[in-house]
């Protein structure tokens, strides 16, 4: 029963999506397609004040300013990558929540593969080693008791 409920519930939870900070309707673009584009761009940009939120999720002043700039440029008809480049030029790689792949970020991007490989090697090593422990030898007292229970004469 619960198993039947699980998937729909999971789907419902995933469908909710994040609460966005663009609360002020004055900040939203009147054109819904443009507003959607601005949101997609904004979700790629880190709020430099709170650092682990995108500018769409953050209530910080600076995030609001950047949201406005993104919307202005989208309304002017700038393509997405030009808007991202505008912010990237000013704030560097760190502002991009998806950092570009370059020598400095190779370890960052390679980490999932490194972790996966490391885990696989670890599991392989542990499997090979998982053998039963040799039981301890019976003591003389235990052997006597066993013999007694078995009804055989003592050794």
């Amino acid at each position: 029963m619960i198993r039947w409920l699980f998937l729909p519930m999971l789907a419902a939870m995933l469908a909710i999506g994040p609460a966005l900070a663009v609360g002020d309707p004055a900040d939203q673009l009147p054109n819904p397609a443009q507003e959607e584009r601005a949101r997609v761009i904004g979700r790629e940009l880190r709020c430099m004040v709170c650092q682990n939120q995108s500018i769409e999720d953050s209530d910080a002043d600076l995030a609001r300013d950047l949201r406005r700039i993104v919307r202005e440029q989208v309304a002017q008809g700038k393509p997405d990558d030009a808007v991202l480049r505008f912010v990237h030029e000013r704030y560097g790689d760190f502002v991009l929540l998806k950092p570009p792949f370059k020598p400095e970020t190779a370890i960052l991007w390679g980490m999932p593969a490194i972790a996966l490989l490391g885990g696989a090697l670890l599991i392989r090593g542990m499997r090979r080693r998982r053998v039963p422990l040799a039981p301890d030898e019976l003591t003389q007292a235990e052997r006597d008791r066993l013999a007694q229970l078995a009804g055989r004469p003592r050794e």
Partner: peptide
């Protein structure tokens, strides 16, 4: 006052 020049400088705060 609008903080626009600050963004051109890449200001955090």
């Amino acid at each position: 006052q609008p903080g626009r020049v600050a963004i051109d400088w890449g200001l955090y705060g």
